[in-house]
Design a protein around this nucleic acid. Structure first.
Lengths: 251, 251
DNA sequence: GGGGTTATTCTCATCTTGAGTTATTCTTAA
DNA sequence: TTAAGAATAACTCAAGATGAGAATAACCCC
């Protein structure tokens, strides 16, 4: 971190290359049985009218993660305890020189996961905000390199479902095994064997712990009451809960 | 990415908060049977005399990954084809407001993996550079938050060994199964069952492919000639080559 | 009350792993 | 020259994990 440029610059910020740092948030929730991502419609140029990820400049004395949480809160109207409950994690950074036509912008992308969030109340500075099903993404052009960022986030989410208890971030405090299975099926995009999933979830240490209670009623289309569970204390799942083999994608 | 600040600023770089963007490189190699990390000794304040990760400012029109590769090349004296062969990947970004006492600096950390690199020829702007065994890290205080960055890099490397062919980046073009096993044992820090490792490596599709050749001689302490292999075309290992269970760390 | 639906538990064949053994080849030291 | 030691590669066997299917019982809606 010590080099010529730095010495010559004498620590005057103005002498450094003009780079702006922003955060972008890839926020996922599950609504109506679909995995959805939060997008906002850009009011002004560049990419006016296009949909983009929520995000903005990092404030002078703000942690990167705090900036991501703040931007997310502004777009969704969430705050306080509900906002604190949302799971955030850093995804990656994007800094290709011309990714923003105005100037050099390096953006730190964050992932956010939350259960069944309400419709976003648009922030004052955004044209509009909405949850879009990820299955509808291919037909929607996003601003900047945000398509790439969403894709990276999606792959990260799908992959972390395998070896971490991330799925529990998509359900409420208490949930049934079927709720959890719905998360996996929705995020991975294909059905799982109910019996095997059940056995697996209960056999992985620390994934879930029983509450002793059951649902009040059976499911909307019948079936017995299901036992309720809470998230366990595991940080990693061992053995992992692997996606069914995807032969071709291994190479 | 559109917000009030941005409109008010009218796109004048000077009006944005002064943030500098740097890259830091966590470069791992295996030398003398040990996993080693590249460190440079800082010449000036802050942290004068302390050891730190190689890194520096991203140039105005430079890709982040290119900046990391350039800084690494400057410190190691590597260039051209040998430098191109080194595997780089983004690790994470670090931007806590006071991580550098001079000003707000957001650093994008990169991981680099290469087989048995020579002693570094220090860059003109660094006091000195050296490879340090990661086992010696606990007794060495690093500048800034670089200890944390190295720890994150180490965990990433150990974990990627499990489900990617990363180990092949630590050996030469042709290698024996024992060479590969040495990489796993060195990075993970404990011995593996030779027979099971052999069976596993050959059974995972795309991990390695035989060259038909064998080593010229047996090992230095005896044993038959070993068959030689090349890296295969797999991007992911399936099934993964998991670390022996680490009960406690799962929670 | 009956049919359809779902939670939960089982069975069973197959695959993968951990641990240990054996045959063979090669180096080193006596 | 020979014996001892070491490492590669292949094999065995028990235990664990997975995929597929089925059985049982509880519950919803009509």
């Amino acid at each position: 971190m010590v080099n010529e440029q730095e010495f010559l610059a004498g620590y005057d910020p103005r002498a450094y290359p003009a780079v702006a740092v922003t955060v972008d948030v890839v926020a996922f929730t599950i609504r109506d049985g679909e995995l959805q991502v939060l997008l906002i419609q850009r009011a002004g140029p560049p990419f006016a009218g296009f949909w983009a990820l929520p995000g903005g400049f990092v404030r002078p004395d703000e942690e990167l993660a705090a900036a991501a949480r703040r931007e997310f809160g502004e777009e969704t109207g969430l705050g306080g305890e509900p906002l604190r409950r949302v799971h955030f994690e850093q995804l990656a950074s994007y800094g290709t020189p011309d990714r923003d036509p105005r100037m050099r912008i390096v953006s730190i992308a964050y992932l956010a996961f939350a259960p069944d969030l309400p419709d976003p109340s648009a922030g004052s500075d955004a044209g509009d905000a909405e949850w879009l099903a990820v299955t509808a993404l291919p037909s929607r052009e996003l601003a900047f390199d945000h398509r790439r960022i969403v894709d990276d986030g999606l792959e990260r989410a799908r992959s972390k479902l395998e070896y971490t208890p991330l799925a529990t971030a998509f359900v409420g405090e208490e949930f049934t095994i079927a709720d959890l299975r719905a998360v996996y099926e929705t995020v991975w995009g294909h059905p799982l064997h109910a019996g095997n999933f059940h056995r697996k979830v209960l056999s992985v240490p620390g994934l879930v712990e029983g509450t002793g209670a059951t649902t009040e009623h059976g499911g909307p289309r019948g079936g017995p009451r299901a036992r309720l569970y809470r998230a366990g204390d595991a940080r990693l799942l061992h053995p992992a809960l692997l996606r069914p083999a995807r032969e071709e994608t291994f190479r």
